[in-house]
Every structure is written in structure tokens, then in C-alpha cells.
């Protein structure tokens, strides 16, 4: 009986406590977590997001449900994340652009301080890629042709990462490319393979996925998958631009929950299934925990604004 009374008291105390601090790390999560993927099913973000969610389920021992909320360059989905209840049951899985580039281009219902970065999971350098039968054998060839003013670059709308990359390269070499906003990934590959555009400046996976030929990568060091492709640094221009993917929670999510998520994320990223899955999907893994990713995200936010100004894209 005594024991029972103690138990009742403990339960009551717990009830009171949970009333004060509604979410305790120890009892989180108690229901499925929605993970908003701000792009449609089947795309890059969706594929990597689903691989991540799958391993997070194991790491967190909880149900995570992907929701594809596509539209307006990923901003509609991330706005949903920013506006969600900050209780840890709504997360977002976003690449670099919707969170650190788009807010500089258009008025959005979110900004730098709308999110709590949880963790970074993947980071792909960008690369300059041409058609396999292209006359341009090196970046110098491409630049030389651009001096005569006849090189077309392809990618998504101005302000997208591939657009920023080609613009930054043009700036560094003092040339200009004609820009064809025909879309990223497969759409860009189609334009390059069909001869409408001379190069794409999308992720380094374009070589493996679409059979394009890489002329240079914008990474700190050569990539294991592309050992013969020089970095832009080696070619004398200190430019690195990557497309990273990370998990975000709405601002105001309790620190205990964020810590719990960040720990689970570390476990998920170490999961061999996650590693092979991401490798198969041509992602380069890079993990950052909550603290490190927060600092990285804030710096990226400011850096990208400066970069947009530098290449002459109108910012807000």
C-alpha cells in the first residue's frame, strides 16, 4: 500500500511537472512526427528526405511521416514549418535554397529567425558539367568560348544555387554566360544533352546520374567519385558552393526536444542503411549537430545574401 501511495504521488508530481514543462525530452515523442518535405514526391529533396526519415524512425523509435508540401521553390512547405506549433511534432527537411536564399529574393512569411536548425545530414558540392560530346574539354575552354560571348548556362530561376554558381564563375573570370532558366536536375541535363545549353552548374551527381562530363567541382578538395576533375581552387579561383540538406524545427521548440532530435539525428546518420542509401542516391554525407549547424546556417544565410548582391541579383 505504501508503495502504491508513493507511485500515485510520483505520478501526480509527474503530471504537475508535465503541466509546467509540456514536453520533456524523456517523454518525447509520444505521437507521430510530421516531416514536411517542401518539394514534390520523387525529387532530390524527397529522396534524401525519405532516406533520412527511415533511419530517424529507428533512431528515435517513433513514427515519422513525410508530407510533401510542394510549391514556389520550397518556400510554401518551409512556411508551413515556420508556422507550425513548436512542440517537436512538425519538422522540415530542406535544402540550402528555401531557407538561406529565397528569403532574400521575395517577401516570405519566414526569415532567418523562424527556425531552429536540428542537424545537417548531406552536403553536395556543385560542379560545372557539359555534354559528353561537348567541344569544351576544360573550364578554360569554356571561359575562352564565353569571351566570344556564346556560352549558355542552364538551371532553375535566377537566385537558385546553379544560377548563383554560374554567375559567380562568370564574375571570377570576368566573362558573361547567357542564362537559360529551364530548371534544375533532369531538366537541366536535358537542355545540355540536347545542345540547347552548353553547361549546367548543378550538383556533382549530374555526371553519374545523367552522364554529363564534369569540368570542375566547387569543393575544397577533389571528390572521391570524380578523382580526375579539378577543384575551382586548383584552377586559381577560390570558390566553393555546395547544396546541403538539413532538418529544421519551428522557432521556439523546447531545447530538450531539439537536443533529443539532434542526438537521434547523429545516430541516424551513423546508421549503415542511411549511409548506403545516401550513397546510392549520390549524396555526400556531412553531419553537424544542433549547435554547429545553427552557427553554419546563420553564416550561410548572411553569406548567401552577400553573394546574391555580389552577382547582381536584386535582394530585398
Amino acid at each position: 500500500m505504501k508503495l502504491n501511495a508513493k507511485l500515485v504521488a510520483a505520478c501526480a508530481a509527474l503530471g504537475v511537472l508535465s503541466g509546467i514543462a509540456p514536453v520533456l525530452a524523456s517523454d518525447y515523442p509520444t505521437k507521430p512526427i510530421e516531416v514536411i518535405i517542401p518539394y514534390g514526391a520523387g525529387g532530390n529533396t524527397d529522396t534524401s528526405g525519405r532516406i533520412f526519415i527511415k533511419s530517424m524512425r529507428k533512431a528515435l523509435d517513433a513514427e515519422l511521416v513525410p508530407l510533401n508540401a510542394a510549391g514556389a521553390g520550397g518556400t510554401v512547405g518551409m512556411a508551413k514549418v515556420a508556422a507550425a506549433k513548436a512542440d517537436g511534432y512538425t519538422l522540415g527537411f530542406s535544402p540550402i535554397a528555401p531557407v538561406t536564399v529565397q528569403p532574400h529574393l521575395r517577401p516570405l512569411p519566414y526569415g532567418k529567425d523562424s527556425f531552429e536548425p536540428v542537424c545537417l545530414v548531406a552536403d553536395n558540392p556543385t560542379a560545372v558539367t557539359v555534354a559528353p560530346d561537348s567541344p569544351y574539354k576544360s573550364l578554360d575552354d569554356l571561359i575562352a568560348a564565353a569571351r566570344e560571348g556564346k556560352v549558355v548556362a542552364v538551371g532553375p530561376a535566377p537566385g537558385s544555387i546553379p544560377h548563383i554558381v554560374q554567375s559567380a564563375i562568370a564574375n571570377a573570370y570576368g566573362v558573361k554566360f547567357k542564362y537559360l532558366p529551364a530548371g534544375g536536375g533532369g531538366k537541366a541535363a536535358k537542355a545540355v544533352l540536347g545542345g540547347e545549353a552548353d553547361f549546367a552548374a548543378d550538383t556533382s551527381a549530374m555526371e553519374k546520374v545523367h552522364g554529363l562530363r564534369s569540368l570542375a567541382v566547387l569543393a575544397d578538395a577533389r571528390l572521391a567519385d570524380l578523382p580526375n576533375v579539378p577543384t575551382l581552387k586548383e584552377l586559381g579561383k577560390d570558390l566553393t558552393l555546395t547544396i546541403w540538406f538539413g532538418a529544421f524545427a519551428p522557432k521556439g521548440t523546447p531545447a530538450a526536444v531539439l537536443d533529443r532530435l539532434s542526438q537521434a539525428c547523429e545516430k541516424a546518420v551513423a546508421d549503415p542503411e542511411f549511409q548506403t542509401g545516401m550513397k546510392n542516391a549520390n549524396y555526400l554525407l556531412r553531419y553537424m549537430g544542433r549547435q554547429e549547424f545553427t552557427a553554419f546556417y546563420q553564416k550561410q544565410f548572411d553569406d548567401n545574401q552577400a553573394l546574391l548582391k555580389l552577382i547582381g541579383v536584386k535582394t530585398r
Binding site: G71, A72, G73, T75, L105, R106, P156, A157, P158, G159, S160, P181, G183
Partner: peptide, 10 residues
Amino acid sequence: IGVDEMSGVS
């Protein structure tokens, strides 16, 4: 209607 995919303008 919506964000123009070529210019990013609403």
C-alpha cells in the same frame, strides 16, 4: 498564377 518558375517572381 503563382511564382513564375523562370524568374522567381510572384
